[in-house]
Design a protein around this nucleic acid. Structure first.
Lengths: 206, 206
DNA sequence: TGTACATCAGTGAACGCGCGTTCACTGATGTAC
DNA sequence: TGTACATCAGTGAACGCGCGTTCACTGATGTAC
């Protein structure tokens, strides 16, 4: 082999990593193969030694970005007490820093609209990661039955993603800050609230 | 003039109307000028008699779509009692019918991700419509101070848009239905809940 | 009322450009002896 | 250890294609007389 055994894999990973940032910044169709390769310090011709098609890279970059988000959540949640984990995640997610750095942030608000129009293959890959993310979120919801926690996890994630979507549309205006604040408070209050079914069950037991 | 006075305006409106559907279906960059004109029964050459650029049409089509959504909300809310308006809006918004028909639905989940990357001109136009939508939502929130209602309106809209975004990523799977249900219940419960500040004020008064 | 002319919404060919993809080639390094 | 050969990640020109935009032209209809 021309290069050491790991060389190709390292290059492949570098392309995916750089692409995951640029695609989140510019959209799933907002940047071309040549520019993505240039980001990784290469020329466009070599692209097809690493990927079957542009779409294949997009799928890998999506998965990579979602994995990085989840890794980031894990690191954050490990640093605080269980009952504070959700607050920690929500406050970081719905910050101006995240709003202003889509390239290193969650893919759902930055790529969500486009994903739903991609091929079934791409959509399935993304939906799988979405489910993983929901499951991780379940772990952050305190004091609920699994079923109720999953429901709450979905609702909280939807509020987080929707809030970021609206905040980014509003840019960096007053409205944008207002949106972030409203979404943050709502996401936290919603998860703190005990669902009626569980409350009723508890009342019965005591 | 070659055609009657209203003819050009009618054609213009037809292009905008058809484009607003197709752009929501295919994305802000997902369909070309030639195809958009064909939708309106014309050829592409005539496009620039109606619009300065493709972007100008996109802006008009965005505004049109948002106006139609708000008109739709108004019509629906007019048919039910004030305390049921929010439920009506949320349930229609977070339905499988809406999920499966992005072309005739709300632009926020279908175009939101892309809007935040458009020119300031496009973003401002959209942000203005977003604010109008929030204000309309305020009118559906019962029994709250204006400030609290606006906050709740933003949170509810974020949950609605985020839920639809997630549901569309999940396609038409079980997960998608689960997401719709979780988002619906959360949006309704959140708005029904009285914020602490208002509750305290009421307690003081009585 | 009838006729000649002016208007301009709409047509369709053409443009320049950037895109995803292909391909013949290169040359640094691993492998065989 | 040294040398000749094989490999293949990466290069850069070229491809076919679709895009947004331009432009000379058309022809139905409004207007002037």
């Amino acid at each position: 082999m021309r290069y050491s055994r790991e060389h190709k894999q390292e290059t492949h990973d570098r392309i995916v990593k750089k692409a995951s940032v640029r695609l989140r910044e510019k959209g799933a169709h907002g940047i071309g193969v040549a520019d993505l390769m240039k980001e990784a310090g290469l020329t466009h011709g070599g692209f097809y030694a690493h990927f079957d098609s542009r779409e294949a890279l997009v799928i890998e970059a999506f998965a990579y970005a979602m994995d990085r988000s989840m890794e980031h959540w894990r690191k954050q949640s490990d640093q605080v007490a269980p009952e504070k984990q959700l607050t920690q995640i929500v406050e970081t997610y719905l910050s101006a820093l995240h709003r202003d750095n889509p390239g290193h942030g969650c893919s759902i608000p930055s790529l969500g609209s486009e994903i739903s129009r991609e091929s079934p293959k791409t959509r399935k890959a993304f939906a799988g990661k979405l489910d993983e993310m929901i499951e991780m979120m379940v772990g952050f919801i305190p004091d609920m039955s699994r079923k109720a926690a999953r429901k709450q996890a979905i609702a909280t994630l939807a509020t987080m993603a929707g809030t970021m979507l609206l905040a980014r549309i509003a840019g960096t205006s007053e409205l944008s800050d207002e949106v972030l604040k409203a979404g943050k408070d709502s996401a936290l209050e919603g998860a703190r609230r005990e669902p009626k079914a569980v409350a009723a069950k508890k009342a019965k037991q005591s």
